[in-house]
């Protein structure tokens, strides 16, 4: 069954919303009493995973919440209600995007729900939910990332999307342990929290998108997004860590 038209219809009628997010303080705080509507975006997760260390998650759908020019989505936030800290990722869009296609890999340490909150420029909130089952415990830190101190090997690939003129897919990965501060090192001491906190994208010097990362993003953070651009545009990326390091990378769109 395709429930998207149904969700959309309900959302238009304004009388329907998902329940359950009310139990998550971080979301309550964000909404400040506003009632979110059902979102038209899809939140894709595997039904179950055997290893919660790098769970693929993606968000797809229109970059607008309604028909008016100011209905474009400016903020998306992802929460995991069973993780030690609910915050997972936040995207801030500085320019309207026709369609959204956002991907990452995240840490999920037990069966739970993920919540996607999105906000349009007019300030309206939308909510979407997806459940995931974790059948064997995860949060393995890959062996080869244990010793790395900072960010290394930024990888970026951008390509024009077939059949969608002016649309590009940008895929990024950077090697970094994303230490949450909750993990014991070989000496039994807690390894201090040290994460990549932000990836900022700009196009021809204009801010395009900021992605805020929390400890629930997998080691070696992977982020992929769809952007509007043209051939020869200059795409610049800037990664920043919680301990003050930064790394820049730029690329011309093909």
């Amino acid at each position: 069954m395709n429930i998207r038209p149904l969700l959309f219809a309900c959302c238009m009628a304004g009388g329907w919303s998902l329940a359950g997010w009310q139990q998550i303080p971080a979301i309550e705080q964000l909404l400040q009493g506003t009632e979110p509507q059902a979102s038209e975006l899809t939140l894709n997760l595997p039904v179950f995973v055997e290893d919660g260390a790098a769970v693929p998650v993606s968000i797809q759908g229109p970059g607008w919440s309604g028909a008016e020019p100011e209905d474009w989505l400016t903020r998306l936030l992802l929460f995991a209600d069973g993780n030690p800290n609910a915050e997972v990722l936040e995207w801030q869009l500085h320019q309207p995007q026709a369609s959204l296609d956002l991907h990452s890999r995240i840490r999920i340490d037990q069966s739970q729900s993920l919540w996607l909150l999105s906000q349009s420029q007019t300030g309206e909130w939308f909510v979407q939910q997806a459940a995931i089952e974790v059948l064997a415990s995860g949060c393995l830190v890959p062996l080869d990332s244990l010793d790395t101190q900072g960010m290394t090997n930024p990888r970026v690939i951008s390509r024009a999307i077939d059949g969608a003129p002016g649309q590009y897919q940008v895929r990024t990965l950077i090697n970094h342990p994303m230490d949450t501060g909750l993990r014991q090192g070989p000496d039994g001491e807690l390894v201090p929290r040290r994460i990549v906190e932000q990836l900022s994208l700009s196009l021809n010097g204009e801010p395009l998108m900021d992605v805020r990362l929390h400890g629930a993003v997998s080691a070696n953070p992977f982020l992929q997004m769809q952007i509007t651009g043209s051939s020869q545009d200059e795409l610049a990326l800037l990664w920043q860590t919680s301990d003050g390091q930064s790394l820049e990378f730029s690329q011309t769109l093909p």
């Binding site: 290893d51 260390a53 790098a54 393995l140 890959p142 062996l143 990332s145 080691a219």
Partner: peptide
Amino acid sequence: AKDAFSKQG
């Protein structure tokens, strides 16, 4: 397609 595998060490 993974970062770790069975009996890796």
